[in-house]
Computed example of a mutant assay.
Amino acid sequence: MTTETKQDELLAALQHYLEETDFAHLTSVEQPDLTALFSDLAGLKTEVKAESRQFKATLDSLSDAVEILKTDNQVLADELAKANERLQQQRREVERAMLVEWLDIYDRLDAGYRAVRQYRPVDGLFRHSKKQDVRFIASVGEGQEITLKRLEQMLQRRRVYSIDCVGQPFDARTMTTIAIGNDPSQANAVVLEELRKGFLLEDQVLRLAEVKVNKL
Rank of each mutant, 00 (worst) to 15 (best):
M1S: 05
T2F: 11
K6N: 07
K6S: 05
K6D: 01
D8Y: 09
E9Y: 03
L11D: 06
Q15T: 02
Y17T: 03
E19W: 02
E19C: 06
D22C: 11
F23I: 09
F23W: 11
F23G: 11
F23S: 13
T27I: 05
S28V: 13
P32R: 12
L37A: 12
G43T: 15
E47W: 08
F55M: 15
T58C: 11
T58M: 13
L59F: 11
L59E: 15
S63N: 15
E67T: 14
E67V: 13
L69G: 14
T71A: 14
N73Y: 12
A77R: 08
K82N: 01
E85G: 10
Q88T: 00
R91I: 01
V94I: 15
V94W: 12
A97D: 15
M98E: 12
M98D: 10
V100C: 09
E101G: 06
E101P: 03
A111S: 02
R114W: 05
R117E: 11
Q118G: 09
P121N: 10
V122N: 11
V122Q: 10
V134R: 02
V134H: 00
I137S: 04
V140E: 12
G141P: 12
I146A: 14
K149G: 03
R150K: 09
L151G: 04
L151S: 01
M154D: 04
M154W: 12
V160M: 01
I163L: 05
D164L: 04
P169E: 09
F170M: 05
R173A: 03
M175Y: 09
M175N: 08
I178G: 14
I178K: 14
I180W: 15
G181M: 08
Q186M: 00
V190R: 07
L192P: 00
L192W: 03
L195N: 01
L201K: 14
D203Q: 03
A209H: 08
A209P: 02
N214I: 10
K215T: 07
K215F: 09
